[in-house]
Design a protein around this nucleic acid. Structure first.
Lengths: 155, 155
DNA sequence: CCTTGACCTCAAGTCAGCTTGAACTGGCAG
DNA sequence: CTGCCAGTTCAAGCTGACTTGAGGTCAAGG
């Protein structure tokens, strides 16, 4: 594979050029040189970007992800960290599942006012107790049809 | 029940006074008057705050939540909106579940380097495809002991 | 009467993860 | 040679949900 310019990397990875420059500044990726002013990337950066996307999807911050790359560039991912994040996700999932069930009930509930519905009041109680916390919104990008892909590929 | 000052509302709801002022500014809550400069709140504001917490937990923004309160202050929650949010959560949950399973596998994987593991590479491919997106972190606050409080005061 | 301290207002700061804009550069097609 | 245009830098802006700080007010206790 040939070297890539930033537009090519952006095109193949789906990551905007501005974000790529930002990642470089943060030390998450590196170009292998310059042609004039222009950055030149090794195709391997695509895998690197995939790892970054994976980390982000799992809920790691960019700073945390940076720590997962050893100085030599090889990913050095602590399995304990992964397991901890999985547990984290598990808790989030349970929380969100409860909310989803609550919402579905409220949506279907025949009570004239939501406050008349005992189930609604139960969820409300839970929310007030701080049990549940706001989920994160997705970024500006959203190729939602890709959901099926992970189901097929990952599951 | 007596009127409450802002500190009392903060204590009982677990919401910091600064956030209460912010909510008032946004029109999410209202005080029933002033004693001197100081805001005076009706105890009903606690239920209101519980609703707000519920909305936040379900992933609604403050602006969206504001729209759910009719001008008279009664919650007027469109059941379609609730159902849509539930579907939203469902998608998020599926996404996170896939991530969690992937992480668990990677954590348990015996391959010396993660990149040697076929499963890891599959997840990676999925992440690169833009399938998965970052989840949201919870807010900084979590006064979980407040559970009992709302149970007593509001419900 | 005077101090204390909880409350007030308003502006600005915080955090993450980028995006946007202005001003500039340089390789290459014509 | 020239102009195009994709690339560059650096600084500033954005979103959301608040927090923090400076400076001001007021009711009550001593």
């Amino acid at each position: 594979m040939k070297d890539l310019d930033i537009a090519e990397v952006a095109r193949r990875s789906g990551v905007p050029a501005s974000a790529l420059r930002f990642y470089e500044e943060k030390g998450l990726i590196a170009s292998i040189g310059r042609r004039g002013l222009r950055r030149v990337f090794d195709p391997g950066v695509l895998e690197r970007l995939a790892l970054i996307a994976l980390g982000r999807a799992a809920g790691f911050s960019l700073d945390e992800i940076a720590l997962m790359f050893a100085p030599d560039g090889q990913p050095q991912i602590d399995r304990k960290v992964l397991a901890a994040k999985a547990d984290d996700l598990d808790r989030t999932i349970r929380r969100l599942s409860a909310m989803r069930d609550g919402l579905r009930h409220a949506a279907a509930c025949p009570a004239p006012r939501h406050m008349d519905c005992p189930s609604f009041r139960r969820i409300l109680k839970a929310a007030a107790s701080g049990v549940v916390k706001p989920p994160k919104k997705r970024g500006p990008r959203s190729p939602s049809e890709c959901i099926a892909i992970v189901e097929r590929e990952v599951m």
